[in-house]
Design a protein around this nucleic acid. Structure first.
Length: 735
DNA sequence: GAGCACTGC
């Protein structure tokens, strides 16, 4: 029966044919990496596996016996993986060292196998405790756990499970748990020494997300303090592992070769100044000179991508008419694209055609497109850099790192040998930084600082930071938290701060929610905050339908037209949730409605999930949310209620305000800088606001306020006076 | 007149 169950892995005869050279040894600087010559059709890390494993209903009726027999089939496959060959060596390092750093290239099997080796060891030695394996992304955690449960011969949630936001399959029997970084941090916030785990595996550590970096810091303080027994394995895909090793007292570094195909590099002879033009030319050249196979182009942002797609659409037919070459079919790919359009890039193309995908960084780690044989790399990406003094995010186009360039090129060698065309000179490649600047060095650290405070860290400047974000950033974070009432004058966390740290929101929004619970508009504010915490809820209409969609949005949201985007979100939520939710055929009605307004359907479903979660938390934290009379929680056009709601937001975003000038421009209250209302805002055309408040201040071509609301100038004084009174109160409380 | 990418008990 298990043999019939259509497994995705390579069949036996493929595995017999493999000749994989592999190598493992303690790492030295002059290690030579040999490339493997064959690939197994098996997704090692689950990274970027965009479609999660579609398990059939049949699986539910699989018996214990068939689960086991399937697992033993899979075992033959596992045994061919590079890490499996070195199981004993790897385990001896792990057993004899508190921390082990393991470098495993794509296809080495590290993410699925190492945790299972450790699990076997726990069984063998009858040791207690379980294993946590962290991942930066939810899909990866889910896919890995699903796969490993199959290999282990159990159902998800038995010995192997996963825990991600909104979805937890673990039970008390679970010994191996895949979870997102964020979930492990939440566990740290609740149960500070992670007593239930005996081994923690940090996967994809090279990605250096803020959350991974924080976890590394917490783990170091744990093994130096209350948990000297804890075993830690740091897994990374790049060779720059010395930093991990040094951080953990020169932990040993192991290197396991992966399985991927060779990718030939090509560079420009002279640099280009028009990157879109260069990408198009390169694609045309590939199309004329190379065998069939799809092209993946990396461009920095949506603007360049849309431009490239438009040009390519125009010239594709012309080019293929002129010579007998495949017809180029261009596709855009970026996160703000409606999911339906995103999914088009995954469909294989038929006939004498060549798929050309123009993508942002999303295709570098998060999404894998099969059939790609050629990569065209602009060498650029967009990055958000936080300016602490200004409380402003800037969006910059910058050169990528060498690691990133290699990752991009590698996308051409996942299924067969490929070619990578770098649209810059080889001499410039050598000058690129080895690694990208870690996220934490360019981020707002208010939220990390709150976590550390909640954890009980007093001296933040000298904490075991894996990457210290710097004194200035930390001090700004402390200042911000003090102003939000999360810290007292001595820098100790307040009761309010404790509550804020437990909410799954950025501190500013948490503080808005707490304020709302105090003044009695919690339910409405939760709805708005839920909308704000979902990225890409309102999609960008294409230029042709832009005016029409804007008109429709404006005509639906009477209060939003006057008061701005936060109130508009609530109006849209009310229609979606209360009005469309009632009918017989709610879901198709909702879908049509979303389409007409260019709203993400998936986005609104996420809003509902966030809302449910926040309501549960709030009930627990302030026991002040009531189920009765949901209808009355609609916003309507009640000016008094709207003012009350906006004032709640003002307590969290008092720094994000600007005052209207006689010439109808705006200047920020804090620094006097000029600021413009973002064109996506409801208030973009409205020229009569005395003041504005915004949840985000981003500098692109100029300073833009996003998620903008109208405020009265008198509110500023009112809110500041209240905050001062609260602060005073807090000081006297703590005396 | 405009939108890098992820993520949370």
């Amino acid at each position: 029966m298990a043999a019939n169950s259509n497994s995705r892995v390579a069949s036996n005869h493929t595995s017999k044919k493999q000749k994989v050279r592999r190598n493992i040894h303690p790492f030295t600087n002059n290690t030579r990496i040999k490339r493997a010559s064959k690939i197994v059709k098996f997704n090692d890390s689950g990274e970027g596996d965009h479609v999660s494993d579609q398990r059939s209903n049949k699986e539910n009726v699989l018996t214990y016996k068939s689960l086991k027999s399937r697992a033993s089939d899979l075992l033959k496959m596992r045994e061919t993986l590079p890490v499996y060959q070195h199981k004993r060596e790897i385990m001896s390092y792990i057993e004899s060292n508190p921390v082990t750093v393991l470098i495993g290239e794509t296809g080495s099997g590290k993410s699925t196998q190492i945790p299972q080796f450790v699990l076997e060891k726990l069984y063998d030695t009858k040791k207690h405790g379980s294993i946590a394996v962290t991942q930066p992304r939810r899909v990866a955690a889910i896919n890995l756990a699903t796969r490993v449960a199959q290999e282990h011969g159990c159902k998800l949630g038995e010995q192997v499970g996963y825990s991600v936001r909104f979805d937890n399959t673990t039970t008390t029997r679970t010994r191996l748990k895949y979870l997102t970084d964020g979930m492990l941090l939440r566990e740290l916030m609740m149960n500070s020494d992670l007593r239930e785990y005996s081994v923690i595996v940090i996967d994809e550590a090279h990605e250096r997300t803020v959350l991974t970096d924080l976890i590394l810091g917490f783990l170091k303080s744990l093994i130096q303090g209350p948990r000297p027994d804890l075993r830690i394995i740091v897994m990374s895909a790049t060779l720059q592992a010395e930093k991990f090793s040094e951080f953990f007292n020169n932990a040993p570094i192991l290197f396991v070769e992966g399985r991927k195909f060779d990718v030939k590099q090509y560079y420009l002879k002279a640099p280009t100044d028009d990157i879109v033009d260069a990408v198009i030319r390169c694609c045309i050249q590939i199309n004329q000179g190379e065998e069939l196979g799809d092209i993946l182009c990396f461009l920095p942002g949506q603007e360049e991508i849309d431009k490239a797609v438009t040009i390519m659409e125009k010239i594709a037919k012309y080019v293929s008419d002129e010579a007998p070459v495949p017809l180029i079919v261009p596709y855009p790919l970026y996160a703000a694209l409606p999911p339906v359009q995103q999914s088009l890039v995954f469909a294989p193309i038929k006939g004498f055609k060549r798929k050309v995908v123009f993508s942002t960084n999303i295709a570098e780690t998060s999404v894998t497109i099969s059939g790609v044989k050629f990569v065209v790399d602009s060498g650029l990406r967009k990055v958000k850099v936080w300016r602490h003094q200004l409380g402003l995010a800037t969006l910059l186009t910058v050169p990528i790192s060498q690691a990133s360039a290699m990752q991009r090129s590698g996308r051409a060698g996942r299924e067969s040998e490929g070619k990578s065309f770098r649209l810059y000179c080889e001499s410039d490649y050598v000058k690129l930084p080895k690694q990208s600047e870690p996220e934490i060095a360019r981020s707002d650290v208010t939220s990390p600082v709150l976590m550390l405070k909640r954890y009980g860290v007093d001296d933040l400047l000298n904490w075991t930071w894996f990457e210290n974000p710097g004194k200035e950033a930390i001090v700004m974070g402390l200042q911000e938290l003090y102003e939000l009432g999360a810290l007292d004058t001595r820098g100790k966390i307040t009761k309010r701060g404790q509550q804020m740290a437990l909410l799954p929101l950025q501190p500013h929004l948490s503080s808005v929610l707490i304020k709302a619970s105090e003044v009695g508009c919690l339910s409405q504010v939760i709805d708005i905050v839920s909308c704000l915490s979902v990225e890409n809820l309102l999609l960008n209409p294409s230029p042709e339908e832009r005016d029409e969609v804007n008109e429709r949005r404006l005509s639906l949201c009477n209060a939003g037209k006057r008061y701005g985007d936060l109130i508009m979100l609530k109006e849209l939520f009310d229609i979606y949730f209360y009005e469309l939710g009632k009918s017989q055929d709610a879901s198709s009605e909702r879908n049509d409605w979303c389409k007409g307004l260019c709203i993400s359907i998936r986005g609104f479903k996420n809003v509902i999930r966030v809302r449910d979660q926040l309501r549960v938390y709030c009930k627990r934290l302030f026991s002040s949310i009531s189920e009765e009379d949901e209808e009355s929680k609609k916003i309507g056009e009640d000016g008094e209620l709207i003012s009350k709601i906006l004032k709640c937001f003002l307590t969290g975003f008092i720094k994000n305000t600007a005052i209207g000038m006689p010439d109808r421009s705006y200047r920020t209250v804090s620094t006097g800088e000029p600021i413009s209302i973002h064109p996506s805002s409801m208030l973009f055309m409205n020229k009569s606001c005395p003041g504005i408040m915004y949840t985000e201040y981003v500098f692109t071509t100029k300073g833009y306020a996003r998620n903008v609301s109208r405020i009265e100038l008198s509110w500023l004084q009112e809110v500041v006076t209240n905050a001062a009174a609260v602060a005073k109160q807090k000081v006297s409380d703590s005396k």
